[in-house]
Structure formats: C-alpha cells, structure tokens
C-alpha cells in the first residue's frame, strides 16, 4: 500500500490530481481511493487531497497523516504549511518548483523531486493550473505508476469533467513534465512551529461570541484581525508599478479587491505603495489602469 497527500491551493486542481492518480493506479489493476479535505476555503487558499492505493481492498477511510509521498502543487506552500508533516523517512516529496531538489527546504531531509510545473502548465495549457503536470513528475520520480497509466487516468477524470480536448492537453502537460523532472534530496534544516489556534476558556468567551479586537499569543482575533492573514502567496503574477506613467487617478486603488494598494505621501509627493503581501495577483489594477502604468509579471 502507498499513500499520497496532495497539497495545493483552491483552483489548482489538487482534488482532480488525486482522482486521476487513483484512476491511473486502478487501471494498473490496483484498488484505489481519492478524497479531498477542505473547509470554507476560496480559490487560492491551501487545500489537501489524498490518494490511497493498495493491491487489496482498502478499508481505511481516515485522512492520511503519515503519507509515503507528498505532492506539493505550489512551492510557496512549503513556507506556510508544514507539508512534510508525518512524511515517512523513506518517503518522497514531489514539488512544483523551479529550484533544484537540493535547494528545497521541507524541515526534513528526504528524497525529493522537483519540476517547474507552472511553466509547463503555462506552455501547454496557457493557465497556471499545475495538477496534470505534477502527475507526470510523480510517475517519473516514484515509478509506481507508468506515464501511460497517468495519461489514461487524466483522460478518464479530466475527460469527464472538462472534455476530451482539454483532457488531451492536460495529458500532454503530464508528458512534458515527466521529461523535465529532476530527483535529489531536499534540505531539512528548518523546524516548523506548530501554529496554535486561539482556544479560549469558556469564561473568557464573550457573550454571543462578540469578540473584541485582541492580541493573543496565537495572533490577532476579533474585528479587523484578518490583517494577519497574508494572502500574497496566492498569486502567480504580481503587479509592477511605473510611477513615471502614473497620474494618481486612484482607479487601481479603488478597484483592488484586496486593498493591497495604499496611497502614501502628501500633495505632489503622493504615490502608490503596492502591498504584495496581500496581493492575490488578479490583475484588475493592470487591466483598469488608463495609462498602462501597471504590468503583471511573474
């Protein structure tokens, strides 16, 4: 039996990747299950999905806490979430990154494979959706399923959801990624702190849960406390602002759904500050700028 945990972001297709891997393993004569785990997340927020494969019938229905393999669809997640949590010592991490395996930091020194799936996806699909490409890397790095089965799995799962044509493009992405995967060992120097959750005593809980703005050891809570939540890691493209072209019409400032653009300075010295730690890279500012003073770059 082997168990795989996928770490992705809402919209990257971790769930479909888990299903396609299960389908691929099933077509090689195994039993396989795939299931997602998410809460109230939006597109861009960290999510997990799981695949469990065995030669015999699978009776275990739990989430996977000690995976044999982890698949990370976005390498920025490695800085936010302890993706290697519970990963077996002889396990392996497959990561979407343009870095070499030796430069990846997971807080645990394990076998590691990397592929620049975002570039592959942009080349083959035109969109930064990396779920199909990373499966190609999984086949190459682990050898547990053949690339042909992966292609068949993608055609099965993606074909029924998004149509044959797009499924074929995704299968091609997997093949391209298969060729570009490099395998090595990652670093394990950093230690992840287990992020705690604010768990107040019942006497501390306010009436009707009407929480006031408070600083707790686990971070801010109450009104306005979302400023702690840095959503900037969600983006693929970031805005680059050219102050010379800018006429300070404030259109981008007004339209930014995330309030990531701030006005600073007084009078003629007024300028815009881009707070990329909140920017989700939607590109509305660049699209609406009347002077083309904002460009979206990777």
């Amino acid at each position: 039996m082997f168990e795989v945990r996928f770490h992705g972001r809402g919209g990257q297709g971790a769930v479909m990747a888990a299903q396609a891997l299960a389908s691929a393993a099933f077509q090689e004569g195994n039993y396989a299950v795939a299931f997602p785990y998410f809460g109230a997340e939006r597109r861009g927020a960290p999510v997990m999905a799981f695949t469990r494969v065995d030669k015999d019938k699978i009776f275990s229905k739990t989430l996977i806490y000690e995976p044999d393999y982890i698949v990370v669809l976005d390498d920025k997640l490695t800085g936010l979430v302890d993706v290697a949590d519970g990963l077996k010592d002889d396990g392996m991490a497959i990561i979407n990154s343009n870095a070499k395996p030796e430069d990846i930091e997971l807080g645990k020194s394990v076998k590691c494979a990397t592929v620049d799936a975002t570039t592959v996806a942009l080349e083959t699909l035109g969109q930064p959706i990396t779920n199909s490409a990373i499966l190609g890397a999984f086949a190459k790095a682990t050898g547990l399923v053949s690339i042909d089965s992966i292609v068949a799995g993608i055609m099965d799962i993606f074909g029924s959801r998004i149509g044959e044509k797009l499924a074929a493009k995704n299968a091609n992405a997997a093949k391209v990624a298969y060729e570009r995967t490099s395998v090595g060992t990652c670093k394990g120097t950093m230690t992840y702190e287990k992020g705690g959750k604010w768990l107040p005593d019942y006497k501390e809980l306010p009436l009707g849960l009407a929480t006031r703005p408070m600083k707790t050891p686990e971070g801010l809570v109450g009104p306005g406390s979302f400023v702690d939540n840095k959503t900037g890691s969600w983006k693929t493209f970031a805005p680059v602002h050219d102050p010379d072209k800018c006429i300070m019409c404030r259109m981008c400032w007004f339209y930014c759904p995330d309030g990531a653009i701030k006005e600073v300075g007084e009078g003629d010295a007024k300028t815009l500050e881009f707070h990329l730690e909140y920017c989700k890279g939607c590109g509305i500012c660049a699209n609406e700028c009347p002077k083309d003073a904002i460009k979206m770059e990777r």
Binding site: R43, G44, F226, T231, M251, P257, G259, A260
Partner: peptide
C-alpha cells in the same frame, strides 16, 4: 468620488475572497 474617498480601510486586507472577486470591491467602497 474616487478622489475624495477616505483612505481608512474598514474592510481590511487579508480576507480570503478569490482573486479578482467583485464583491470586496463593493464592500470596501
């Protein structure tokens, strides 16, 4: 107008809407 809208944010950054969502534009304003 857009020029005279106050700078202070009562709907802060860090909310978890999808990128490019129209609703936070409305709510912020």
């Amino acid at each position: 107008t857009i020029k005279t809208l106050p700078e202070e944010e009562l709907f802060t950054s860090g909310h978890t809407a999808c990128g490019g969502c129209g609703a936070p534009i409305v709510v912020r304003a």
